[in-house]
Amino acid sequence: MTQANHLIEVHGLNKAYLNGDTRVEAIKQMDFFIDDEEFITLMGPSGSGKSTLLSILGGLNHPNQGKVFIDSLDLYALTAEQRADFRSEYIGFVFQSFQLIPYLTVLENVTLPMAVTGQKKKVKTQMAMTVIDRVGLGTKALRLPDQLSGGEQERVAIARAIVNKPPLILADEPTGNLDSKTAKDIMILLQSLNTDGHTVVVVTHNADMEAYASRCIRVQDGKCFV
């Protein structure tokens, strides 16, 4: 049973993978929860297992053992296609290095998660323009990603993550490729999204980012320390 105020619950999570002939224990017996509308940083050094953990929370990486509940739903009891639908409605991803589609404009990149929804083009464009304005790129909606600065590309990535109004935003090192001023702006933006009601989970190895979060979960050697 999960508790009503817990958006995410992780029980007895284990994940190992083979690196050549070596078995790497990326996640070892993790147990934690994240409340609704929390801003969490998953902090830890490189190779500690935080990105693996984020992909498991996002329904992208099947764990070897353990359960992940999101809004009381056993994520890995779903089929792969059901998890895809779940991601579409429930989770917004912000990837490392922005990961925008280079041949699509800002507007098209942001509308991308809605390509598989049944909404009308006009509604999609309106929704996309609202979030593009929200991240401060209203005048650059028709530009291609390579015509934007790193900070602007990160904003587009965030706009794409929130366009479907998902309750949960998962961000993997969103400030890793940005200068400190731009990184600060991005964290403030994520903070404001959290204030608007999104639960935000940010993977980072930068201790300065902890200041923006409501709570920090430390990850080291595949274990978490809440």
Partner: peptide, 12 residues
């Protein structure tokens, strides 16, 4: 990978 992560099904 991005398509799948943002909710595209295999069929898409």
């Amino acid at each position: 990978g991005i398509f799948r992560a943002i909710g595209f099904r295999r069929g898409h």
